[in-house]
Every structure is written in C-alpha cells, then in structure tokens.
Design a protein around this nucleic acid. Structure first.
Lengths: 231, 231, 231, 231
DNA sequence: CATGAATGAGGTTTCATTCAT
DNA sequence: AATGAATGAAACCTCATTCAT
C-alpha cells in the first residue's frame, strides 16, 4: 500500500517550504492523490453502499484515473476499508480533544453526549458507512488494523466520568460503561441513520434542523436522568 | 442444478384431483410459489441489501426458476418492495395484541417498551430491511401503499399513555409522543442493527442473549426515568 | 455444468427425427452450442496457451457470444479444463479401438507404436495442450475428474503385450510397462512438440511430411529392438 | 516495498574507493544489476511462460525497480530473448567438455547419451524454456543471433561416432545423425518436460530421483540397441 | 544511473433481464 | 402456468509501459 513516501517533504530548510507544500499544480503528489481519491470514495460508498458504489463513478469524480485507485488501494474493497479506517479515526480523534476529564462529572457527561450528538448530526457519511458496514457483518472493519484498539478510549472516558460521579455521590453505581456508551450511541445514531423511514412513517424528519436543539436537550436529559443517583 | 423440485409431482391418488384450488399436491400453486419466492427473497435482501442481493441467488434457493420471479414480481425492485410490504405488515399484526390501554400508565409504558425491545431483538430481518431502506433514502417503502398510515397507531398508543400519566400526576407534561417513540426505537433498534461494528469495536456483541435481560431492564428504566415527573 | 439436457431429443416417434437432429437452423441447441465453443476454444488455447488465449477471441470465432461461454463453462479456466478433458478423452478412446490384444505380440506392439505416432503426428493441438498443461504443473488436468482413471488403459494394453511376448519367448522380461509407455510417448511427442526449436537449430523440421515415414519406421524399429529378447 | 537493497550501501573503508570499476561495493554496478534481473527473469519465464510471466513479478524479486528492467532490456520480449540467449549459451559451454572423440564408438555414444540425459535431468529451466519457445513457434529464438550455428556441433559429434562405429563393424550404416540426435533428445527431454501430466496420469513422476538411474540405463540401452549392427 | 508515480488499453467476469417454446 | 437458453451492458481489475524528476 506504499506508505511513508517522503516525496511531500523534501525541503528541510524551512525556506520556501510553504510553496512546495501548497502548490496545487505540482504534478506528482501521491499524498494529495490518495486523499483526493479517499474523499471522493467516502462520498460514493456512503451514498451507494459497498456493492452499489461504482469504481468508475468514483474515478470519474477524481482528479486521476481509475487505474490510480487500484495503484494505491489495490481493490474496491481495499478502498472501502481505507475509507472506514479514515472515518472511524476521525471521530475518535475528536473525542480525545474534548478533555472531559477536566470537567466535573455532570458537565463532563453532558459535554460527551453533546459531542456525540453533534458529531452524528453533522457527519452523516460516518453514520451511513457504519450502517453499511453492519449490513456486511462488519467483516471489512474487522480487517482494519487500527480499528479495534482505537475505540476503547471512549470507554475509558466514560469509566472515568462514572467513577468520579459515583465518588461525588452524584451517579448511581450500577451502570456499565459499555452499556452506557451503547445507550448514548443509540440515541444519537438512530435519528440520523433511520431518518428516512422515520420521516416517511411519521411525516417528520427527525434530523431536521428545527428539531435539532430539542432532540439534543432531550437526549442529554435522558442520559443524565439515567445515570443520576435517586435520593 | 435445481433438483428435487417437488412441483412436478403429480397427484397419484386420483381422488378429488379436481378440487385443485385447495389441493396442496396439485402441480401448479401460484400462491405457494409466490410465498416461497417471497420468503427466500426476504432472507436474501435482508442478508445482502438491495444492491448486494443477487437475483440468481434468490432463484437458486427457490422451488421455481428465475423466470417465475419475474413473472410474479416484474423486477428485482418489485420483489424487494413486496418483501418490504410483507415485513411491515407482520409487525402491525402484533402491535394490535398489546392492549396497552387496559394497563395503568407506568405498566403500560413498560409493556410498550418491552414489546418494542422484544420485537427488534427477535426480528433481525426486519431491522436489517429498515436499515437497507434508509440507505436507499426510503424511496421504495414510500411506494408501498399500506405503509404510511400504518405507523400512526403507535403514536396514538403513546399519546394515550402520556396523557393518562400526566393526569395521574405520574408523568411530566413536556414530552412529545413522536420524540418519545423515536427514543424508544433508538434504544431498541441500534443494539440490533449495529451489533456487528459494536461487537468488533468493543469486543461485546450487544445482541448476545446474555445481555438481553440486562439491556431490556436498562432501556425500560431509562424510558421511565425520562417520562417520570420529578418531585 | 448443466448436463443431460434432453432438449436435443424431444422427438421420440422416429418420424422426422432425422430432420430435428440435423437441422442446423434450430435456435436452441445447447449441445451444439457447447461443442462449438469447445472446438473454437481448443484451437485458441492450443495456439496461445492458457494465459495467452483471449476469451474475447474465442467468443468472436464462435456462433454465440462471450456470455454463453461463461454460462456453460463458468470461467476461462473452466473452459480450458473442459478442453483438456475432451482431448485426453479422444486419444484414449481411439486407443481402445485398436484391439491390440487380437494381434500377436510383435505386430501388436508395432500397431500400438504406429497408432501413437500417427495420433501425435496428426493431433498437434493435443500435443500443444499437453505441453501447455505441463507449463502449469498439470494443476488443471488434476481437477478433471475423468482424467486419472482414463489413462491406465494404455498401461494394461502394454502389460498384455509384454506378458504375451515374454511367454512366447520373443520379449525380454525386464521391461516395465509404464517406462515403455514413457519411451514410446517420448519418441512420438518430442518431434511434434519441439519441432520449431529443432527446426531452427538444425534447419530441418522433424514433423515435415517427407520425414514422416522414415521417423515412423525408425521409432517402431527402436521400440522393437528395445523389447526384443537377444539370443 | 523493496527493502534491504544493498545497492545503496556506500564504501566505508575509504581505501581504493576510486577503483570503482571492480569494487563490488560501489553504488551502481550495471553488470551486476543486469545479471540479477536476468536470473530472476529466467526463473519467472521458465515458471510461468512468456505470456504468463508478469513484469511486475520479475521486478519485485529484483534488487532494482521495474524501470531498470526497461532501461536495460527494452521490453518484456527483449528480456525474454536475453534469457533465451543466456540459457542456450550455458549448454554449449558444457558440450565442449565431453571429448567424445577420444572414446571408442560405443563408449562415446554412451557418454553422449548420458551427458544429454544428465543435462536435461538437471536443467529443468532449460527444458521449460525450450518448451515455451515452441509454444511461440520458436520465433524469439530465431532472432537470437548466436543460436542457429550453435547446435551443429552435436551433429558433428554424432556423425563422428557413427562413422567410426560403422568402420569398426559395430554400428549399422543406415542411421541419420540428425534423426539419432532427435531420438536421444526425445528420450531425455520428454520425461522432464512432461513430467507433470505424466505423473498425474500414471501416478508416477518420471523425473523422480528414484527412477533416475533406471531411466538413464534404459535410454542408453535403447540407443545402443538401435545403432548396433545386428549380425 | 536511478526511481516512484502514473497510465491507456484491454482483460475477465457478473449483472438483471428477455426470448422462444 | 412454467421454463431452459440466451444476452447486452457494464462491472471490476490487470497488463506492459512511460513520465517527470
């Protein structure tokens, strides 16, 4: 898969490095080529599914040819896996930036839920790709090396919040961190992922901007009520 | 290819052979053929998605030939829509048996959530088909005549529960029925629909039987805490 | 592989059966279609090798389309295997027609060698296909069901000749049947299979008609001298 | 890709670093690079055939890159021809060492056959490449300059043996030298070149070491019986 | 001398569908 | 009512080769 190509950083002097890094006209820029393909592929796979996506369609919207797609990613499936790797990497990276551990348990939990809500609300491609991957029994994401370890971080964040909340007498002590993560995900994911059938069934698109704030508050509320210690 | 097709087996008794409309042994039975095709198609579409499913694969597992599939359903999409129609019809039948209105608000809410949980937990084909429909923007279900009005009954049930709960001083008064339905659906749907990626990410299949009772109680708990009036 | 299709023999009355069996115009005749594809493929694979042969090229010289080729033979390799099966079947079938067991040992041996010589001399496609298959380590012919058992018959024929020759005091008793078959094959095969390099090297095409009779006699002579008992 | 290429290793001794023409450690060594490519190509072409061999596969097993392959040999076919030239050159060198003319006719003939046998038995790459060339009608070897004249020496050797044998009353006088060479080649070549199909057909690999001595004796025996004058 | 990136042309295969009986 | 045979279009992928540095 040809990684670590140093071609993009030959200038180590610092002088004029700006030019070489941003010159969109340069003929050979593998990193940019790959990124370009990956971006287009993300849209196509997310819109059409793995089987529904067309390699030709992806190539056409790319700055390169279909051939490059195989050059860099080996196969349609390889490209699909690269897309999965990218999108899962993105959400977990952003979660890290939250620094929830610096907030008190309730505010931290709120921040985590709100982040999760916002992310799913905005990153519909991510939601669709996860859905698609589940139709395939997660068999592609299983082969993505970096996948398994990467997701544990959320659980650690939640465990930290829960234990601090319990210690402060704010949270009940019988909540499992993974179950809670599942609950939060469910609430944030479903309204985006299944918005079409939901909209058709009830005449109301649950992901419509007008409902956004209300749902956000509702979900935060539901989660906090769930974890809070009753007195 | 295609062996042991029983369709060709002739009536050997000679008795009542002309009561052909109800004789299960008669040579051609359009209704049974259609049902057979529909059952196989349900599995295939649910397992592979609309684009992923193969007409040949469906035909092969059928008692008839590929040609019949077109004879009865016109096209791959037509067959897919017939599957959707059947699956949505099934759930409606069950919903009617709940008789939630005879229970007090809290027990009624519990019963509704538990029913929803159990249904999704058991009907994985349904969950998958809904997922698949959403990938296609719900454009096929929209054409299914009986679909639109069908789902409103749940909302009525929830509205009834909510208003009775409010009147009894048990429930808060600021909960929207459709939002609540969305919440319940989210919690019951996600753990089934996305169990593969979830399982891969966290090493725990959320739909595993061992977690079933715990999740069921958790979701009931979360919903009741959410609707309950705080004093 | 769809065998035993009775489509070619619907007329059982005997009347006009001649017409239906030979009517080249009939639209659907799977057996003929398959045979046609197989014949063309034999030429193409023999001329170009497995990798060198082009599916398109085969299809083009066929009465049907490329699609039918996949319909009946599944893949390029499947077609290649079918070709192998056919050509190996042909030579062994003809060998059976020799009825060598009815001749005295020396004449029988002569007849067998002459048959082997003539067959290789005429069936250059066969020789080429065997060569090609050896380049692939015989891995395709190994998967041909009928292959292994079919070849043993020659060995039985040779064993019969040898034992009768020994009993009659004509042949030496220390010749192994398989080794002898290898010897005969070598002498008949090489002059055809490697005629091009031989011709280039020595300016004389060993398979040229003018040399045919001389080589035939030479090989018979060599084999008989080899098996004959010296007194 | 391509790791551990030693080509980049600089001279660290500092001594004689400018005697670059013969220093094996120097950065660029065209002759060595060419030889390396040629060796790998010999294996690949011999294993896969001309059409079956992949330029990428050859390049990958090389110390250099694909580009170099074109730099030195122009094209895939050019490389193939270079391989042929090398391989035919190798056998000539060995043939010279035989000195058959110093032996009496029978021992000389035996020595020649044994040499031919041993050479084919050991040089499977050579056998395969000859086979491959014949599939392509020997059109590449024809363009190899040094090829044509090269093989005549064997014929002279055989002619010498034959005439000395005839003069001594040991050999028959009606044997053609080229025909005899063809016979010897046949017996030595076939058991190596077609060992795979032969092995599959008869359950016995004719090139197996255990059969080696027996076949060698058998072939010598057959040739001597053939040339010997009967009295 | 050396090379990573790039490619057009053409390869094999699969798809949902229709034909002729 | 039912079917085996047939198919055009388009899919995914691979090939030997060249470009720009």
């Amino acid at each position: 898969m040809k990684k670590g190509s140093k071609a993009a950083e030959p200038d180590t002097t610092g002088i004029a490095s700006n030019a070489s890094r941003t010159d969109a006209r340069r003929k050979y820029d593998p990193e940019q080529t790959k990124r370009n393909i990956l971006d287009v592929a993300t849209q196509e796979f997310s819109a059409m599914g793995l089987t529904g996506a067309r390699v030709d369609a992806i190539a056409e919207r790319t700055n390169t040819t279909k051939r490059m797609l195989y050059y860099y990613f080996g196969s349609k499936e390889g490209l699909y896996q690269a897309v999965l790797e990218k999108v899962y990497g993105d959400i977990r990276a952003l979660e890290q930036d939250l620094h929830v551990s610096e907030l008190d348990p309730i505010e931290g939990m709120r921040a985590l839920v709100e982040f999760t809500f916002d992310y799913h609300d905005r990153q519909r491609d991510f939601v669709r790709l996860v859905t698609i991957e589940n139709i395939h029994g997660a068999k592609y994401v299983e082969q993505v090396k970096s996948f398994k370890g990467r997701n544990v971080t959320v659980i650690h964040t939640i465990e930290d919040l829960l234990s601090r909340g319990i210690a402060a007498g704010l949270f009940r002590s019988d909540v499992d961190a993974i179950d809670l993560h599942l609950m939060i995900s469910s609430l944030c994911f479903h309204r985006v992922g299944n918005r079409h059938t939901f909209g058709t069934a009830f005449g109301r698109d649950p992901s419509h901007p007008r409902l956004r704030a209300r749902h956000r508050a509702m979900i935060v509320d539901a989660v906090l009520r769930f974890v809070r210690k009753e007195d």
